[in-house]
Design a binder for these strands. Structure first.
Length: 497
RNA sequence: GGGAGUGUAGCUCAGUCGGUAGAGCAACGGCCUUUUAAGCCGUAGGUCUUGGGUUCGAGUCCCAACACUCUCACCA
């Protein structure tokens, strides 16, 4: 028997065991059908959110009614009375099902006795409190809206197998309320960013995900193919070069929040498809972008975190303004001890770090040393400014120091969260920069894009541009230390069967 | 790809010195009209990831494979 067959047999045994539970639930489904009830319900109007029902409840007023719908997450059957904890996406609601109230017809008490954990139901009835003070819908009607045929996870611990949680996010979301909460926050964070930008006159646009040239960043692209045009295409690694074309076209403030794709490894900070905010503002520069970045993120911290000191894994991030702005060279000196001008010292340090510096250009070595020594120290928000120009082919040089470029990266919690430039708008210089390939870099940001050069020749206004990694931003704002906890369906190795 | 860790019932987990498999939840059969992870009585559920090895005897020790997690590398 081959390994594949062996594994296949193993998984079929496994599913057979699970099938035992499913068969029992199938039997219940048949019994429900025999009662003349559609186990997959239908439209259910007028259900209120659990949290709204609870907050409008007034003690002592006996005329109150309520209607709710959700999944059964707890069930306590006491004979002629059943207490159910229903979860909708606002919270939980207790429903009391009693033999007297529901009556003997099929859709009443007999149905109630067949309900089980995981089923989705609707219930309506008088609102009241129990002996112990819990607000309860005393149901006089109950509807089965969807039968659950699979065994729900353990009711107290929820689903904790990490692999299963990512593979079956649909279970994770309802079994672990804090997961639902985090994704609701993610959505709300993105909505807040949109509102913020739109209020400042930015226009949201969508640019191609499939591109002839994968430009705007240094990363391995995914390759795809268009049949009718017989065309090889890349999934974009960044929207940058298209957004800049829009600047040429006269859109003065644009942004895009969408996916980028990079064909690289997975880690707690990397998912091959990730969400990026990129924005461009004509007539601005990287200083304007710094102000904007600090403003957006502080607004979000205020809204989604408690206080300015925020826990993140082992660290505490202090968002108190103003954030540190430190030159690249200054941080290199501070943490590696090397003077950026003293390339011999930098190379020695690189060798000491075990880097194969012989095959690398000076700036590449310097950057390797920077990454190895500096990044792990940048816990509080830090703008790293003025990068070596050679590392930034799309960035304008500093007027008085042409060896450095007007670029910053923002680090928070040891992660690169944002990257911004004063955009290069000189077509001749851009053309030259596209031609320079650095030794020691696996991927280059310098990929010749003639059409983009043509666009620049028409004249692109001077501009500031900014990219913010949304997934990582959501991580630091929600305390998730793995990107998989803020991406609904992270990329996983497929299972063997 | 390197290193470390984990893999036991559907789920969450115990399993001592190597002596032949345990709990809670879920399920099934009972009892129960005010429960809060309801409770009580009973039943069933296992190729201990897989394959080798050591041993009289392996869930336990050794080797290998597979899967997952963490970590390093890669990711400017």
């Amino acid at each position: 028997m081959t390994k594949a067959e062996d594994i296949g047999r193993d998984s079929s045994l496994r599913s057979e065991r699970q099938g035992r539970f499913e068969r029992q639930r199938q039997e219940k489904l048949s019994r429900i059908k025999q009662l003349g009830i559609d186990p997959y319900g239908g439209r259910y109007d007028g259900a209120e959110r659990a949290c709204d029902i609870k907050s409008r409840y007034k003690d002592g007023d006996e005329g109150q009614r309520a209607r709710c719908a959700g999944r059964i997450v707890l069930l306590r059957d006491i004979g002629k009375l059943i207490f159910i904890t229903l979860r909708d996406w606002s919270g939980t609601m207790q429903v009391g099902l009693s033999k007297n109230l529901l009556g003997p017809e099929a859709s009443g008490w007999p149905l109630a006795k067949l309900l089980e954990l995981g089923d989705i139901i609707g219930a309506a009835g008088q609102l009241g409190k129990t002996k112990t003070g819990e607000i309860t819908v005393w149901a006089d009607s109950v509807s089965l809206l969807s039968k659950c045929l699979c065994q729900p996870p353990e009711k107290f611990h929820g689903l904790s197998d990490i692999d299963l949680r990512y593979r079956q996010r649909f279970v994770d979301l309802w079994a672990n309320p804090e997961v639902m909460e985090r994704f609701k926050n993610r959505s709300s964070i993105i909505a807040t960013i949109r509102e913020f930008l739109q209020a400042r006159g930015f226009l949201e646009v969508e640019t191609p995900m499939m591109q002839r040239k994968a430009g705007g960043a240094a990363a391995k692209p995914f390759v795809t193919y268009h049949k009718t045009l017989d065309l090889d295409l890349f999934l974009r690694i960044a929207p940058e070069l298209f957004l800049k074309r829009l600047l040429v076209g006269g859109m003065e403030k644009v942004f895009e929040i969408n996916r980028n794709f990079r064909n690289e490894g997975l880690s707690r900070q990397h998912n091959p498809e990730f969400t990026m905010l990129e924005l461009y503002q004509a007539y601005a520069d990287y200083n304007v972008m710094m102000e904007l970045t600090e403003e957006i993120i502080c607004l979000l911290v205020e809204k989604y975190c408690h206080g300015k000191q925020v826990r993140f894994g082992e660290e505490t991030i202090d968002y108190t303004r103003p954030w540190r702005r430190a030159r690249y060279a200054e941080l290199l000196k501070e943490y590696s001890g090397c003077d950026i001008e003293d390339i011999e010292a930098v190379r020695m340090r690189a060798a000491g770090l075990g880097l194969d510096e012989g095959d690398m250009d000076d700036v590449v070595v310097t950057n390797e040393v920077f990454e190895a020594t500096v990044e792990d120290n940048l816990v509080d928000p830090t703008f790293v400014i003025d990068y070596p120009a050679a590392l930034c082919p799309l960035t304008r040089r500093k007027k008085d120091e042409p060896k450095y470029a007007e670029r910053f990266e923002l680090y928070i919690g040891k992660m690169e969260l944002a990257n911004a430039y004063t955009e290069l708008n000189d077509p001749a210089e851009q053309y030259e920069n596209f031609l320079v390939q650095l030794r020691g870099q696996e991927e280059s940001m310098a990929r010749m894009d003639e059409d983009f050069i043509t666009a620049l020749k028409y004249g692109m206004p001077p501009a500031g541009g900014l990219g913010i990694g949304i997934d990582r931003l959501v991580m630091v704002l929600t305390g998730a230390t793995s990107i998989r906890d803020v991406v609904l369906f992270p990329l996983l190795k497929p299972t063997k069967d």
